[in-house]
Structures are given as structure tokens and as C-alpha cells.
Simulated assay, not measured.
Amino acid sequence: MKVTIDIDCTPQEARTFLGLPDVQPMQEALMRQMQEQMSANLRAMDPETMLNTWLPMGLQGFEQFQKLMWSQMSNAMGGATTKDGKK
């Protein structure tokens, strides 16, 4: 014998029926607090500080990465010259 029961209820009604706590107010408060903290951090950072945070090595790191990519491409192409004219 097979019995199927379909229950049509909202997630909130299911949580209440099962005796689970209502965590929605806590989630809303945490999200509001996180949003305020992120906004305060963004307001406090000037563009240079943000750039230094995102790119710790700054432009030197980007230049090193660019040189690495050029050398890898030139090696893959059989030792062709780079844009400096060096091999």
C-alpha cells in the first residue's frame, strides 16, 4: 500500500509547523550591519589605498606579469623577438 500526502504551504508556515525558530529578523539585522560596515569601509578608502589593497605589488607586479606573459608567448612561438627587440 502506498500513501502520498501533498502539503501546500509557504516556507514560513513549514518552519512554524516543525517548530523551527524564525531567523529572518536576525538575518536582516546581520545583512544591514554588513552593508553598513562595507559602505563605511568604502567611504574611508581613497582610490590609491583601494588600488594598493587590490594590487599589493602595484604596477610593478603588473609589469612583471606582463613580462612573464611576453616571454611565455615568445617561447611558444619558437623564440620570436619581444616588443623590445630582444630575443
Rank of each mutant, 00 (worst) to 15 (best):
F62P: 00
A76T: 12
A40G: 07
N52L: 04
A44F: 02
W54R: 07
D84K: 12
R43A: 15
S71T: 04
C9Q: 15
L30E: 15
M26W: 08
D22F: 03
A80M: 07
E28L: 12
E36T: 02
N75G: 08
G85W: 00
G19S: 00
M57E: 14
M45T: 06
T49C: 02
M34A: 15
K67P: 02
L30I: 06
G78A: 00
I7G: 09
S39P: 00
R32Q: 14
A44Y: 01
D46I: 06
G78I: 00
E13A: 15
A40P: 01
Q12E: 15
Q64Y: 08
G78R: 01
W70N: 04
Q33I: 03
I5V: 15
C9K: 15
D46W: 05
M69K: 09
T81Q: 14
D84S: 14
A76N: 08
T81C: 07
L20W: 09
Q60A: 13
L68K: 03
P25K: 05
N52G: 05
E48D: 12
K2N: 06
W70G: 01
D46K: 09
L20E: 07
C9N: 06
F65N: 08
V23M: 12
D8K: 14
E48T: 07
T53Q: 04
M57T: 11
D84P: 00
L51E: 09
K83Y: 12
Q72W: 09
I5Y: 10
K83G: 03
G19N: 00
A29D: 06
Q35E: 14
Q72E: 11
P25I: 10
Q24I: 11
M45Q: 15
W70R: 06
D6T: 13
R15E: 10
R15P: 03
G58V: 06
M38V: 07
S71E: 14
G78E: 01
G61W: 00
M1C: 06
Q64W: 09
Q24E: 14
V3T: 11
S71Q: 14
P11F: 02
Q12G: 09
Q35S: 13
E63F: 12
T53K: 01
E63W: 06
D6F: 05
I5L: 15
Q64I: 06
S74T: 15
T4P: 00
S39N: 08
E63S: 10
D46V: 06
Q12T: 11
T16S: 10
T81S: 14
M73N: 08
R15W: 09
V23G: 03
T16Y: 02
W54H: 03
G61N: 02
A14P: 01
A80I: 13
K83P: 10
Q35W: 01
P47K: 07
Q37S: 11
S39W: 02
M34V: 06
T53R: 02
F17Y: 07
M1Q: 09
A80R: 08
